[in-house]
Write a protein that binds this DNA or RNA. Structure first.
Lengths: 342, 342
DNA sequence: CTGTTAGCGCTTTCAT
DNA sequence: ATGAAAGCGCTAACAG
């Protein structure tokens, strides 16, 4: 038997005090004596009153303490990505510290409407697959923080993807390098394929294009030329998509001896395939990744990569969001050499 | 420049109609002429009014259209579990069809309070790590549906874990079987270890114990005895935890020749380790899993397992929840033989 | 330290 | 087909 729920008012009547006193007992301890507060809390617990209704509280106060994290893709895909998981973990930790709560939201959802009025704002992690969401983020009067991407007039947290890509590529490029670039979401093709003549997609904001710019700048500096035939687009960092691209690349003549991968997940799949084909890393083929995930350190050979420290990025994002930053924050990264490069 | 947001009232004033008419235009199309409705919607779009505030709507109507899914563990852990992902995907699909929304919530959160007033109810997927949440679910006056576990007086969706475990074990057990059981969350130990004399944990509701019962019943039927030294507890289905347990098991004399694994993830890790040690599957060691994940079909040898069809389970859960079922629903499962067993 | 009251934005009778 | 008005449960002035 679930008895009908109490409200502030009914509880106040039962205890013979005013509603304000009950409200204060829960939300502003300094407004009444400790004893009375204790007595009230005690009585409420007995009555089964759990405290002020959060929906009403939110309506009245204009804020709920809930922050939406908009992922770039569907929940189940994103959450199985170690980089996203690490970011989410950082966000969760920092929000918890600040007594706030997180609402994970899919970037492929049709609209923000169903949650927009329940949350205090949005932390947008990467460009949402459904671009309609970007429009909504642009228009909303709530707080918005972009991570790993930009939106005019909105604060952001980023690393310098172009410079990081330049640095890691510079480290491994030599005059005789035959490069294959394994890129992530460079176009909107659903399968892995060479970039060829397909038009670049959304080239401004995407981190993939910033990284590509960095690779190409490093190549130019090293006197190495890279055609669109040597650049692959992968729709996601999955094993399968990576394998498809790597096989195609390794079948080229002359065979590439340097794989620049836009994520560690891609790089790990690439290494697996390279070794499978009997080639040696790094003697025959060098491989470098991007992101920095534990698995890359456990692999043999260990992976050379750019470490983004995504958990710290998550914490930084929450702090910037809560602080109400309005500018853009550039986080440090770290080039970690491994055995996969010379 | 973000202009100050409109409300039903301000919009009504601007358009020279009453608030009820605006409300009806959005929520009850049959209450006004199609033309007027169209005109109003049009005007609202121009004014930048997105429709009734959901928080106020929820307060007034007493329901929000949001359903909380309580996971058994933290978000980042759960989401990287393919079985949970599949379930979540099923839930998402079915909710979307019914114009409802999902709020994923961590089973290790300290309390349901922060979200309880925003949602229409809870779908609880497995026993939450934080048992305080179970108490809250027991007490709440909102709708609750349990999945893969039970709560007195609440409806549930399950498979018959005991029978499924019995069936798969019966299929592979022989009089000369030397069994090792790799169990999931059998106690609350933080590391993989033999069950030994540790007391069983929460033995009633846990699916792990139901499966264990099934294995043991099959063993008894086959005339095989299994001591607590042959049963391992793994805190989670991670590669590392599985490897620890499998190594310990394979070091026993006589070496086990049958590994009964309580998840496919554990079984895959086990197969990896078995092959690594130069043993043959299934000639030297048979391995069976539980759950049914794609990766098990792709592995060589393919994995013998119980297929739960977790996506369908997710859909069934939503349907039962929305329908307001009060009893418990037992879903079918499927024994799929693979090359990992004889 | 406590009580009264207005109103957050909305839906829904009940009149018109 | 439309409008007026009563609240959903709560908080923040303000007055006592």
């Amino acid at each position: 038997m679930t008895r009908t729920s109490h409200t502030l008012k009914t509880v106040a009547q039962q205890l013979g005090v005013s509603t304000a006193t009950i409200s204060n007992a829960f939300s502003r301890p300094d407004q009444l004596s400790a004893q009375l507060r204790e007595k009230i809390l005690q009585a409420c617990a007995e009555l089964g009153y759990q405290g002020p209704n959060k929906a009403a509280q939110s309506l009245r106060k204009g804020s709920s303490g809930i922050v939406a994290v908009i992922l770039s893709d569907s929940l189940d895909y994103m959450v199985s990505d170690p980089v996203a998981s690490q970011f989410i973990r950082g966000v969760a930790r920092s929000l918890e510290l600040q007594q706030r709560h997180m609402l994970l939201f899919s970037g492929s959802a049709p609209s923000l409407d169903p949650i927009a009025d329940f949350v205090d704002g949005f932390i947008c992690y990467g460009a949402p697959r459904n671009t309609a969401l970007i429009d909504q983020l642009e228009k909303t009067s709530k707080k918005v923080l972009m991570v790993d991407c930009d939106l005019p007039g909105r604060p952001s947290v980023n690393i310098d993807n172009e410079q990081a890509a330049f640095e890691i590529a510079s480290r491994v490029l030599q005059a005789d390098s035959r490069v294959a670039i394994l890129g992530l979401r460079l176009t909107d093709a659903p399968n892995s394929c060479r970039l060829g003549d397909s038009p670049l997609w959304d080239s401004q904001s995407s981190i993939a294009h910033r990284r590509l710019d960095g690779y190409l700048r490093a190549a130019a500096a090293a006197g190495v030329s890279i055609s669109n035939q040597q650049i692959w687009h992968l729709p996601k960092s999955s094993q399968q998509d990576a394998m498809d691209a790597v096989r195609e690349a390794l079948a080229d003549e002359p065979k590439p001896n340097l794989l620049l991968c836009m994520s560690d997940l891609i790089a790990l799949s690439a290494m697996r395939e390279v070794l499978q084909q009997g080639l040696r890393i790094p003697q025959d083929v060098q491989v470098v990744g991007f992101d920095g995930i534990e698995e890359g350190q456990r692999y043999h050979p260990t992976l050379t990569s750019i470490w983004q420290h995504s958990d710290q990025k998550g914490e930084a994002a929450v702090d910037a969001f809560l602080r109400g930053d309005s500018g853009s924050l550039l986080l440090p990264y770290e080039l970690r050499p491994g055995e996969s490069s010379r």
